[in-house]
Amino acid sequence: AIAYAKVLGNTQVNCLAGIAPRGADLGQLEMTFIENLRYAAQKLEEAGIRLVMEMINTRDIPRFFLNNTSQAQEIRGKVGHANLFLQYDIYHMQIMEGDLARTIENNLAAINHIQLADNPGRNEPGTGEINYRFLFEHLDRIGYQGWVGCEYKPATSTAEGLGWLKSHNAI
């Protein structure tokens, strides 16, 4: 991952926890995940790259191990390394916990990347229930300085799927 990141000029790498096998000891899985994150955080820090971990909803990916913000913050605390951050995916966290604005604000110091898609459908903003105009203004108000990445399936075509950007003065 470090070699690829350096070639591509990436400044951060996402570590996904993966799916918990049926019948697995969740305590052992957590311990393994923590050890792996601790190792990766150190190696990536030495290379000047930040490590983020992403929480994924269990409706789309049943048994995904890391699936909410409080669990991620607890694991982050157990890892105990300053080079571990959260990648906050608005789509996944709307499904798992809602209360997006407050959760983002309360965890802002740990969030190094935000991703978006609307819910339901995982399509572009404006196709579902999430009030993206409010959330974008909220991110500005609370001082979020990171990137907001788009990870959605256009409801129609790619070109039409980017039309929402104009209404948010993003282009």
Rank of each mutant, 00 (worst) to 15 (best):
W147D: 14
D118W: 05
G149L: 06
Y132K: 11
R59W: 03
A109L: 05
L66G: 01
R38Q: 13
D25G: 10
P154V: 05
L108Y: 06
I111N: 10
G161R: 08
N106D: 15
K6R: 14
Y39W: 13
Q73M: 11
G126L: 12
L108F: 10
R141P: 04
F134L: 12
V13L: 00
H81K: 11
N169D: 14
K43V: 12
E45A: 14
G163C: 09
I19T: 13
A5Y: 02
M53V: 05
D99R: 13
E30D: 09
L139G: 11
F85Q: 02
D60E: 04
A47D: 02
F85T: 01
A72F: 00
R122G: 08
N68F: 00
W147M: 14
L84K: 06
F134W: 12
G77P: 03
A20R: 09
L162G: 14
H81V: 04
A24F: 02
A155T: 08
N106Q: 15
F134Y: 15
D118R: 08
G23Q: 09
S157C: 11
G98V: 00
D118H: 08
N107K: 07
A110N: 10
V79S: 04
C15P: 00
N131T: 10
Q145W: 08
N106Y: 07
G18H: 08
N10H: 11
L8I: 01
N169L: 10
W147S: 15
L37Y: 00
V52R: 02
P154G: 12
F136I: 05
H138A: 09
W147T: 14
G77E: 01
V148T: 15
T58W: 02
I95P: 06
L84S: 03
G128W: 04
R76K: 11
T58I: 06
A20Y: 03
E35S: 14
I19Y: 04
N123E: 04
F33G: 06
R122D: 07
R63Q: 07
Q115P: 06
